[in-house]
Design a binder for these strands. Sequence first.
DNA 1: GACTCGAGTCCCGCC
DNA 2: GACTCGAGTC
Length: 662
Amino acid sequence: MDLNAAQLEAVKTLSGPLLVLAGAGTGKTQVVTHRIAELIRHRTPPGRILAVTFTNKAAKEMQQRAAARLGRRLKEKPEISTFHSLSVRILRRHIRQLGYPTAFTIYDRADQQSVARSVLREIKVADAVIRPADLINQIGRWKTASIRPRQAAAIAETDKEHLAAVAYRRYQNALKAVGAVDFDDLLLCTEELFRRFPKIRRQEAGRFDHLLIDEYQDTNGSQYRIVKALAAGHRNLCVVGDDDQSIYGWRGAEVTHILGFKKDWPDAKIIRLEVNYRSTREIIAWANRLIAFNKLRHVKVLRTTVRGEKPRILQLQDETTEAETVVGEISARIRTKRRRPRDFAILCRTNEQPRAFEMELRRAKIPYVLFGGMSFFDRKEVRDVLAYLKLLANPRDEVSLLRVINTPPRGIGQTTVARLTQFAVAQARPVWDILPGAAKHGGIAPAATDAIKQFQSLIAAYRKRAKSEPLARLVAELIHQIGYRNELARLYPNPNDQESRWASVEELINAVGSYAASAQRPTLLGFLQEATITSRDDDRQRESQLEHNAVALMTLHSAKGLEFPEVYLVGMEEGLLPHKRSIADGSDVDEERRLCYVGVTRAQRRLTLTLALSRRKWGKPRPTQPSRFLYEITGQADNPNYKAAGKPKKSRSRKRIARPPG
DNA sequence: GACTCGAGTCCCGCC
DNA sequence: GACTCGAGTC
């Protein structure tokens, strides 16, 4: 594709701060890859270029595109990664400065949950008062705002906030005690490292001469400060993003970062990309009309030339009819319009919605791939094996220890485990450390004592071997020795279940193998760190399926950055989109509107919005209201932003989408 | 103390 | 519909 004037300017502006405000489908990715190529053509050593993307998938894609543009001649590659993998790499070098062991474990959401649960139990807070998931979200918000436990306690107002602050302190201590960091800590620690040790900041920043940040609208506080710290010296910072697509406010992303870029970098050049190469005029018209309802934004109006059919709104009876209708249409269009399954996407607001569509797709025998939801690394059997590996890498990892100490059952029952944790808490030592002397503490049956001894020497033996032996073989042997296959057989009498579970275990062993083959200095911990930060979107199986040919079934959040010829945006109802939690929280309907905007702008040729007049919720069918966005997008609602500017009023009629009588 | 039973609550999104 | 929690029962 030839670049237009604006794109060309963005590619050729090689020094100084630059903000590229790129609307949806305006060739943002091309600009970034062309720019990397241009920098290298102007004799920037590739290794001195750092590009940061939002997901690992995006990073991988950009790596491929950059490689394609540059040819394979380069010895060095530009560094293209996410904030999280960048942080892991920095922390591997310096985390000791912050009082952590160099061998740090990364806790994912499930690990966080179990820490949160035990913390809440310790301070005797019932689930009804603070749910573990809510506590984690709250801690996450504090962390991305750089608020430490002590400050959290100081600013807490309600009883609930005070409790959460207490839990936060204990949670953080628990993590630190076992040498674990969570996702937010990765960024927070990096930020802290740069703040407290200017020499380290200079050293890390000095590794690059050019910094590119993609999806800048979704940077949170920590990321924002890391970017500043890395770019302060050379000032060659290019950020690319679209404030209209900022959809991660709930995890600390702030649109103000992109809106206020010029304030941080007064000499910044701003380039707008507004020519859309993706969608038809009709789709863009709807997108423009919808997003104009948001108040706080850089005004952009997407332009495009391709004409197509008008987007449609389908009102269906309930969620089953919705799924039947959508899948029926897809099926018909594959037969009669020579479309392929991969040309379609069904986009949902929540992870629960796809269920009905999955059933229909299966019935219609249309291949599909479900994104989000349960990932490979969420499966019980995978988590079990991973917990063993985590324990080998770091025996103080309490969450993993407690998970595997009696999996498969080896005679260390609940009572014994409870006693062990009591001893450990009483002595303020990790459970692992008190295992050898467990017998002395009394209250533990002789049989259990033996089992503990055996378990302990098993882990110790493999721990030793992990330092020298090939990892994949070691893991396979460990799984064999603990009799995990028999355990699966015991738990899942159905041979199909058994087979598929065992297949995941084997896939995990393969993953260890391919990691060991590709890493420079493979270690168990390295594998685990990588697996944790790439688990969600690095699912090779899904990728290949999609490439192969399947309907994409996913949430709006995971659809960011993707495009499809035909898009079904389903569940256009009040409470779902906008989601009821965002309505209840007050202000954040604008983010829901951006989410809807992201969905609409994924469509290249054909867009269908659907709503169900009744939807089953918690077992019972309940009547629904059409989403306010439907009125806005079709011009049936007043836009207060236009009214202020004296634009003509739109029709106020709501009849076109109103519920039919009866 | 173990049990049943009904009421009340619940899962939004993810690197 | 699935789960938890507390009151009530044995």
